[in-house]
Amino acid sequence: MIVLEDVHKSYGKLKILRGCSASVKLGEVVVVCGPSGSGKSTLIKCVNGLVPFEQGSITVDGVSVSDKKTDLPMLRARIGMVFQNFELYPHMTALENVSLAQIHVLKRSRAEADARSEKLLARVGLGGKLASRPSQLSGGQQQRVSIARALAMDPKAMLFDEPTSALDPEMINEVLEVMQALALEGMTMMVVTHEMGFAQRVADRVLFMDGGEILEDTPKAQFFTDPATERAKQFLTKVLTH
């Protein structure tokens, strides 16, 4: 579904990604973890072309992201993305947030789009918040709206960029539960997160990144019990002991 081959990215002289290769198969849940500044967020933003990269290739559902002939907006419409800071549109209600791209990208009528949005908002537990502005919602609620916004495009895969990092601890679970339900339904997911509990419960594989490289690409069970690299071992002791 998602194939990355030898992806390089630098900002000026600063190398962020040094040859990352990985793949996410249909229906798979892959968690990307690693210390801050390891390039996880940059990597996941390369997948839908939000961050351009200099070298290597990424294909999603067989379509190349970096090919100049690719209709990038059409490709992005089929990949949902959830951001660390939610990035809901503050001048719109929850319903309008979820309907916007359905109307302007998928060309659904407003009624059609709103009906779909209502269903999705109900599904993430926010059926009663259709008319609320983002500023009237808690962080956890906002992030659930943003998951609904991504799902509204009927995506073939979902990208999550640290979806719980900006949340207060008591709101993390309500977001993780929605994500877990998605995973169980068979959604293809690539998730950058520090939530190792989530990784242990739903991930098929774990990618461990450090210094712009993917150091490990291992099945979940093996990653948590017997990581191959010393750096992954150190990372795990740090995140699992507290």
Partner: peptide
């Protein structure tokens, strides 16, 4: 991030500018 969020849903740059 607002622009990124719009682009990520498949909106074109001009649509992101206009609606978001």
């Amino acid at each position: 991030g607002q622009t990124e969020a719009g682009l990520a849903t498949g909106l074109r740059r001009s649509q992101v500018m206009r609606h978001i």
